[in-house]
Nucleic acid binder design. Structure first.
Ligand SMILES: [Mn+2]
Ligand SMILES: [Mn+2]
Length: 535
DNA sequence: GTTCGAC
DNA sequence: GTCGAACAACGCGCA
DNA sequence: TGCGCG
């Protein structure tokens, strides 16, 4: 007999569920014997064109045609259920199947996307921390990943995922995870039997996971690995790296308690922070040199006793510069600035985690050269929406003749930084940025708000223009933030911004490596200073 | 993390 | 000498 | 004037 059949080639796992990763493995190995062809439609049979026949009829003929094939045949009839869609879907969800395809029984055959069929996914999507892994002797490699989720600062166990990665991906994951075992510990709520087999890692990587639902202990059921959540930064054409941290400077790095961990038992060590700032110094220093700087210090490593410091302190190394100026009350106070690599690197010893800068230089305090629109998403706003908002504001600012730059805030928000010519004082800049922000909020009141009150901020993005006042600061480019996993406030090109899944993936651990190839997208920002239109 | 004053 | 306490921001907008 | 906020 002669037939044209529509179907799909799959590889089944032990439970008879088709797995794309197993298909990839089979193809890579040339293991054709593992393939199955699931036939779901019949287009031609013995010279008859059946494409105008109703689906029900075509499937009946297909079933008949394949009826002689055994249960182990490489060709299988893809059976269907008529009606009862809800129940079938519920069943598919329960089994951890990918979803259900529904087709109109009376429809003719048309290739491509039509309204006569629809695919409904039964799986939930989520991103989970990779908390550990197990290995198998058989495969001589990765067997499963242990997953976790942070809940009020504590990592909780969420079950294993042992499917969804092909051999190459598994090898890759293993290579990324092995170095993370040092300093790791188990999350909360790990069952005894898991405790024995799992190799815990420091919780620095996240995975995209599909799963059916959760058990009563919140572990995922039918979890499928769908890829590592990773940030890629593009390399700009003019990524010339100017060396600001010399070998001699690196030799001066010294900290007490280098192995003390901050922010929990699997957190970064004091030495990790010192090393981070040494590695990003070439990119960060141009943005902080000569500016008044405030610090967030966490000498004890406990988040609740971090403190903000704007004035000189006793015991401070002489390499950190100080100067005096008056505050709004007219009192003369001492302030800090970083003037060279030595002073910058010396700060790690004092538990400095965050750097915050004024939008001006100490030599011209009252001629600011930067303004910042700090986008703070309220409850219920996704990262995607903040990005979209930032891109919108970018266009508005460009329409005013300005050159806005973007960075992640280190939290959930985005900072839009705009270099301006040093022609206005703080009052004017503050007024102008207030007016711009209010105009944005007025034109899209259900997206933006400019009032701080937490109530108005639900489901909205707070445009915080208050950074643009004398003595106010915002997190410096490349500054870490004092919270779990030390995310970095990371300058990114506008196109990279849109490719970021989760800003916390840019952190003390990942960023130095990324920057080594990408360079600083904010390099020479001062060349893009424009006049800010003021009233 | 550092200093300073009390013991 | 050792130990423990003290110390480490502030300007803006709104109620 | 006081308070919340970053
Ligand atoms: Mn913010
Ligand atoms: Mn803010």
């Amino acid at each position: 007999r002669e037939a044209v059949i529509d179907g799909e080639i799959v590889v089944l796992d032990a439970k008879g569920i088709s797995r794309f990763a197993l298909l990839q493995d089979a193809l890579a190995e040339g293991a054709g014997n593992k393939l199955h062809f699931y036939a779901f439609d019949l287009l031609h049979l013995d010279g008859w064109d059946l494409r105008k026949a109703p689906l029900g009829r075509r499937k009946a003929l297909l079933s008949q045609l394949l009826s002689g094939l055994g249960a182990n045949s490489a060709i299988q009839f893809s059976d269907h259920v008529e009606g009862d869609g809800q129940a079938l879907y519920a069943q598919a969800s329960e089994m951890g199947l990918e979803g259900v395809v529904s087709k109109r029984a009376t429809a003719i055959y048309q290739s491509g996307r039509t309204k006569t069929w629809t695919k409904i996914k039964a799986l939930k999507n989520g991103d989970f921390i990779i908390a550990g892994y197990t290995t198998s002797d058989a495969a001589e490699g990765l067997a499963a990943l242990g997953l976790g989720e942070f809940e009020d600062g504590e990592l909780h166990y969420r079950g294993k995922v042992g499917t969804g990665f092909d051999a190459a991906t598994a090898a890759d994951l293993l290579a990324r995870l092995e170095p993370l075992r040092a300093g790791a510990s188990a999350p909360e709520g790990v069952p005894r039997e898991i405790m024995r087999e799992m190799n815990w890692v420091r919780p620095l990587l996240s995975a995209h996971i599909h799963y059916a639902n959760r058990t009563t202990d919140n572990a995922l059921r039918h979890a499928v690995f769908r890829g590592l959540r990773d940030v890629g930064l593009s390399t700009p054409v003019s990524a010339k790296r100017k060396r600001l941290i010399a070998e001699a400077d690196l030799a001066t790095i010294w900290v007490t308690n280098p192995t003390r961990r901050l922010f929990g038992k699997t957190g970064p060590t004091k030495l990790d922070i010192a090393v981070y700032y040494a590695l990003v110094g070439d990119f960060m220093l141009p943005h902080i040199l000569g500016r008044p700087v405030s610090l967030v210090r966490c000498p004890t490593g406990k988040p609740q006793d971090c403190f903000f410091q704007r004035h000189a302190f006793t015991g401070m190394p002489s390499s950190v510069a100080t100067f005096e100026t008056t505050n709004s009350e007219g009192e003369t106070k001492s302030y800090l600035s970083v003037e060279d690599a030595k002073g910058y690197l010396a700060l790690a010893q004092f538990g400095v985690v965050e750097f915050h800068t004024w939008g001006t230089h100490r030599t011209r305090l009252d001629r600011p050269d930067l303004i910042v629109f700090d986008l703070d998403p309220g409850e219920g706003i996704s990262w995607r929406e903040v990005v979209e908002a930032a891109v919108h504001i970018r266009a508005e600012l460009e329409a005013m003749g300005l050159m806005p730059f973007a960075k992640t805030s280190g939290g959930k928000g985005i900072h839009i930084t705009v270099p301006v010519t040093q022609k206005q004082n703080w009052k004017k800049l503050h007024q102008a940025t207030s007016a711009i922000s209010s105009a944005l909020a007025t034109s899209a009141p259900d997206i933006f708000t400019t009032t701080m009150g937490k109530d108005n901020r639900k489901r909205r993005i707070f445009i915080d223009y208050h950074r643009n006042a004398r003595g106010h600061t915002s997190a410096a480019p490349y500054s870490l933030r004092a919270r779990t996993n030390l995310p970095a406030s990371t300058p990114v090109s506008w196109s990279d911004l849109e490719s970021i899944d989760a800003p916390e993936d840019l952190n003390y651990s990942s960023l130095p490596g990324l920057l080594a190839t990408s360079g600083d997208p904010w390099a020479n920002m001062e060349d893009f200073a424009r006049d800010l239109p003021v009233l």
